[in-house]
Computed example of a mutant assay.
Amino acid sequence: MEIHAFLPNRIDAQITLHPASRFIGVTGPSGAGKSSLFRALACVEKRAKVAKSWSFEKIGIVFQQPMLFPHTNVRGNLALAQRHASPNALSVEACVKGCYCEHLLEKPIDSLSGGEAQRVAIARALVNGPSVLLLDESLSAIDIFTRRKIYQFLNTLCVSGQLTCFVISHDLDDLALFSDELVYVEQGKVSLCGATTDVLSQVFEKEGVAIPSAVLEGHKCSESVTQVENMHGIARVMVAGHEVFVTEEAISYTENIKSAYRAHSITEVSNPEQDNGPAPVRFAVKACDVSIDINVGGFNSASTVSILNALPCTITSIEPVRLTSSQNKKSHQQVTWGGKVLLKLILENDSQALYASISHISLSRLNLNVGDKVIARFKLP
């Protein structure tokens, strides 16, 4: 999929996406041109010039400000959108259920909270039946639990081929969990574009994120558990050939998704409900939740600690954590260094990465170096 969007003095973006990509995340600094890109794609700017390889008939856009019609209630807003809906549009019932706003149908617009209004705006856009949906920070006021459930609903539509979704967000964890590809915009240009995990690692370096998150992929195990007495709300996931434990809440958002890129190529996983195979899942692990164990030989003998999960890894980089500060408003920002270092780890026999944030003291005490084999132990996500 090729896209070129140009808006004088605002955006000049060249984007190349894999044909199978349906959920595309867009991020970058404030003022970089992300919203201008969407306004150009949605044809709401007269000066915009757009060349694209898709043949979609209808494009929907939802901004951070919901822009609902105030003269009618929620049901009325949905009915107005339904008047000119595409033949393949979802029903009102399906849209409000997927956007968690069934209970808001009779509410007047001025009584909605910011998050409620955003949910209604997304449902209204879906009722209109777009082939492409552009979400410009449209879920920013929604709590994380509901937000990710809505992303899951949208992702299901993308996997089924009913929708292609472009999502602008500054929440990198959200984008990492759901995006097939990630686009990074800065200074009116697209500087990074491609596999989500690859782009994400470059974004962390570019933005100097002190405590990044890694997103691991695996398959949910369906077999019964006999060695763990209490598994309520906890799922077993196989990652790189090793069993880890994850809360059901952390992975429920991403079941039945297409797999992310592996080795710069995309492989579409069939629906596990159709082939009865294990469900592909993603879950995020924050660097601050990862500890390093140099006792590689004791991989399976950590029963005396509360940390459940362990994965064998190799240290590929060790970088000091940057802290940016300024003395006053007029002074230039100066980079200072904190008391921690960030380790990048690659899983054994796999290309997936983890991050660990540890102190300089631990780095020295354990005598850690690039190339060392270690065990990454992390808390229950």
Rank of each mutant, 00 (worst) to 15 (best):
A79K: 09
A79L: 13
L80A: 05
Q82C: 07
Q82A: 09
Q82D: 14
R83C: 12
H84K: 13
H84E: 11
H84V: 10
A85T: 12
A85D: 07
A85H: 08
P87F: 12
N88M: 08
A89E: 14
S91Q: 05
V92H: 03
V92F: 02
V92L: 06
E93M: 00
A94H: 09
A94W: 09
A94I: 04
C95Q: 12
C95G: 09
V96R: 06
K97M: 05
K97T: 08
K97A: 05
K97V: 04
G98F: 03
C99S: 04
C99P: 05
C99M: 12
Y100K: 07
Y100H: 12
Y100F: 13
C101G: 08
E102N: 11
E102V: 06
H103G: 06
L104E: 13
L104T: 07
K107A: 03
D110A: 00
D110F: 04
S111M: 10
L112N: 03
S113C: 12
G114W: 15
G114Q: 14
A117F: 12
A117N: 14
Q118L: 02
Q118G: 02
V120A: 07
V120C: 10
V120Q: 15
I122C: 11
I122W: 15
A123I: 13
R124L: 11
R124M: 07
R124Y: 13
A125L: 15
A125P: 13
P130H: 15
P130M: 12
S131D: 15
S131H: 15
S131C: 13
V132Q: 05
V132G: 02
V132N: 09
L133R: 08
L134P: 00
L134V: 03
L135D: 05
S138V: 04
S138W: 10
S138M: 09
L139W: 04
L139P: 00
S140L: 02
S140A: 13
D143E: 14
D143N: 12
F145C: 03
F145W: 10
T146H: 10
T146Q: 10
R147L: 01
R148Q: 02
R148W: 00
K149W: 01
K149M: 02
K149L: 04
I150R: 00
I150M: 01
Y151L: 00
Q152R: 08
F153Q: 01
F153T: 01
L154P: 01
N155A: 06
N155P: 01
T156Y: 03
T156N: 06
L157Q: 08
C158P: 04
G161V: 07
G161W: 14
G161H: 10
Q162G: 00
Q162R: 14
C165E: 01
F166P: 00
V167A: 07
V167S: 05
V167N: 02
S169A: 11
L172C: 11
D174L: 02
D174N: 11
A176Q: 15
A176L: 15
D180G: 01
L182S: 06
V183F: 08
Y184A: 06
Y184F: 13
V185D: 14
Q187H: 13
G188Q: 06
K189H: 14
S191L: 15
L192S: 03
C193E: 09
G194S: 07
A195D: 15
T197I: 08
D198P: 00
D198W: 04
V199M: 07
V199W: 12
L200N: 10
S201Y: 10
S201E: 12
S201F: 05
Q202C: 00
Q202I: 00
V203M: 10
F204P: 07
E205K: 14
E205W: 11
V209L: 14
